[in-house]
Design a protein around this nucleic acid. Sequence first.
DNA 1: TACTAAAACAGTAATCATTACTATTATTAA
DNA 2: TTAATAATAGTAATGATTACTGTTTTAGTA
Lengths: 125, 125
Amino acid sequence: MQLKYSRQRESIKNFLMTRKDHPTAEVIYTNVRKEYPNISLGTVYRNLALLTEMGEIMKISMGEGSDRFDGNPLPHYHFVCRKCNCVTDLAMERVELMNRKASESFSGIIEDHEAYFYGICENCL
Amino acid sequence: MQLKYSRQRESIKNFLMTRKDHPTAEVIYTNVRKEYPNISLGTVYRNLALLTEMGEIMKISMGEGSDRFDGNPLPHYHFVCRKCNCVTDLAMERVELMNRKASESFSGIIEDHEAYFYGICENCL
DNA sequence: TACTAAAACAGTAATCATTACTATTATTAA
DNA sequence: TTAATAATAGTAATGATTACTGTTTTAGTA
């Protein structure tokens, strides 16, 4: 199935690039609606899945609540505030030691890792 | 609200301690039913939440599918197989460097971190 | 041992996020 | 301009989890 351009998808991508707070599908929906009032939530979900699959954006699943989306697809770590539940990017670089250490004690193949940091964000302090 | 003993909760906990594969609530339900045929799925969920809150077990949320539960509440890393989606514990010790590095570039407080490793498990190789 | 208040239960209904379905519209290559 | 098909809007369906309700268990006390 070859990909065809869609204005809605472009708008979703553009919106996501303007945000650093990793919005949910619902938040993206209400915002993209300002430009495309008839867009449906299903279209938002379908395109978020597509963009994630193509590696243009990133899906972040926390334990609780809806999935969130990140306009920056390059691998990086995330911080989750235990008070306000906000999610932010961390500037630190990847710790390559992690994969090496994991491989030592493991009989399969370690390809990659993801990490979430928890604590209190600047605003909540 | 003070806690009262329940046979169902004990059975759920016991079952979870015998397993290393981090079963879902549904799997726990079908197994505990062998001992308590009338137990309801709601009871399983309620007790899993309770045990997690008390720090006796651990909830693991992946991006896809149901949450999983781990009878070992001590902090440790998990591996997720990209082929069979199995989840296993990793023997490696915590990398303390992670929290230190994260704190350097962050203006809030880093208390903790979680990590998930992805790759191919021994069985799938 | 019986009594009582409250916690836990089974069974079921409701919620929430997400996905699937369908008839219509937009895209794109010839 | 046409034709094939991908994408859409709108809606229905799904799946995981939580909430509700009348009944049963637990546990402290008489």
